[in-house]
Design a binder for these strands. Structure first.
Lengths: 230, 230
DNA sequence: ATATTGAATTATGAATTCATAATTCGGTCA
DNA sequence: TGACCGAATTATGAATTCATAATTCAATAT
């Protein structure tokens, strides 16, 4: 893994890899929304590549579950259903629990300090009700903890699943009281990390995720009911 | 998911999908061994397809971690290092633990009966010291439990990771006392399942996996040391 | 007005072609 | 003999081409 990474950092990544990332971003940031057709030709023109690397990228994205390829009918951004959320969240919970335990065994003092800094920043953005920047700081905290597990397989699995649900864009819908609660949970998470209390951190992260699930579910239900009304 | 599956079952799977499966099998059964080059051209001839679908398949296999693509140098079957095993097993453990808990909530009596049948068969093959068929029955048991979690995401993640380590072919090296112990563990697993004791089953499966890890590690260490001697 | 048919158009799946990078191998020189 | 160079060969990355399946849309029938 480290070998292939070092090679990748020297050599220019191939076209298809770049395309995977860029299309992933289009999906996550909502330019390509769930249920929409992935316009193969347009994307080729937009990125200035031929269909070959584009189609290779689409195959990888399909294998990651971000899009669905229907034979002879093209690619579609996969919808996030309530059923899928109910599947993904427990799995993410199991992974986060493990990450928390491992992180407490392996995290450095510098990394804990980095979490502390990100935490303070996150709280500031909460006070300002700045959802965008709150999300970024929040995300940074979880990334540091995950990386501190020193388990690239775990990190990769978690990232892959996170991407699938991140599209739900739950933050836009997060109610203020739930948001407040999330900040409090993060205070506990930081404390457990500082104490290197592995099992406790695992439980906290899992719980934190379950609450997040509540938010996402609510957002999705609202979205679905409003869609029905149209 | 059910939609795309029903479509896939009607339409002929595309070439690249078929190739992904067949090359996967070549890797798992050892025809393509770890560290070996994946002979793109030869495989094209062998399967009677052009390079385009073949290369699409290789991209997917790389994304699944079965092979490594080195820019301008081709594809190689990824080696299983001890470091990777140490990463993968805890993740699989977390997933199996979850699977056990969910299975106890959702498994049908018929499915428990199927596990019982496979268990009896497995014990018979143990008595005959028939490793091949023991492995098959063993595998069937774990598949039923996993499927009983009713969580296709969990199943997919578990399968993907299992494939990565199944290549280690640990069974060939399993010592008789460890084998005996594995059978005993399976007796407990069956009992927990019959009692629908979710938490307990989760712990048992995780423990069972850790023991398996010991076997795989030993096999790998022996293999590496013998390789060094060459 | 709506549904249905079929030709024209477009999109997709896969083979082929082309440019370039890596490897091989024969020859040269130390 | 062995290290080094460079032309020939081969493999790889990506664009193009070609065959076929899906879709669109105008014309017709109900």
């Amino acid at each position: 893994m480290s070998l292939s990474q070092s090679i990748a950092s020297i050599a220019r990544p191939s076209l298809y890899e770049e395309l995977v990332e860029r299309i992933e971003n289009l999906i996550i940031e909502g330019t390509l929304s769930p249920g929409a057709k992935v316009p193969e030709k347009e994307l080729c023109v937009q990125f200035g590549v031929s269909r070959t690397p584009m189609r290779e990228a689409l195959k990888v994205l399909a294998s990651d579950g971000l899009i669905a390829l229907e034979p002879n009918r093209g690619a579609w951004v996969r919808e996030i259903t309530l059923a899928e959320l109910q599947e993904v969240f427990p799995v993410l919970g199991a992974l986060e629990g493990l990450a928390g335990e491992l992180a407490c065994q392996n995290i450095t003092d510098d990394e804990i300090e980095a979490v502390r800094v990100a935490h303070v920043e996150m709280v500031k953005h909460f006070d300002d009700r700045n959802r965008q920047d709150y999300f970024k700081a929040n995300h940074r905290i979880h990334e540091i903890i995950l990386d501190a597990s020193r388990n690239t397989t775990l990190v990769a699995q978690h990232r892959s699943l996170s991407k699938r649900i991140r599209r739900a864009r739950y933050l836009a819908n997060m109610k203020i009281d739930r948001w407040q609660k999330a900040v409090e949970e993060h205070r506990q998470i930081l404390t457990a990390l500082e104490n290197r209390a592995g099992v406790e951190l695992g439980i906290l992260l899992k719980q934190h995720l379950e609450n997040k699930f509540g938010t996402v579910r609510q957002g999705l239900v609202e979205q679905e009911s409003s869609a029905t009304l149209l």
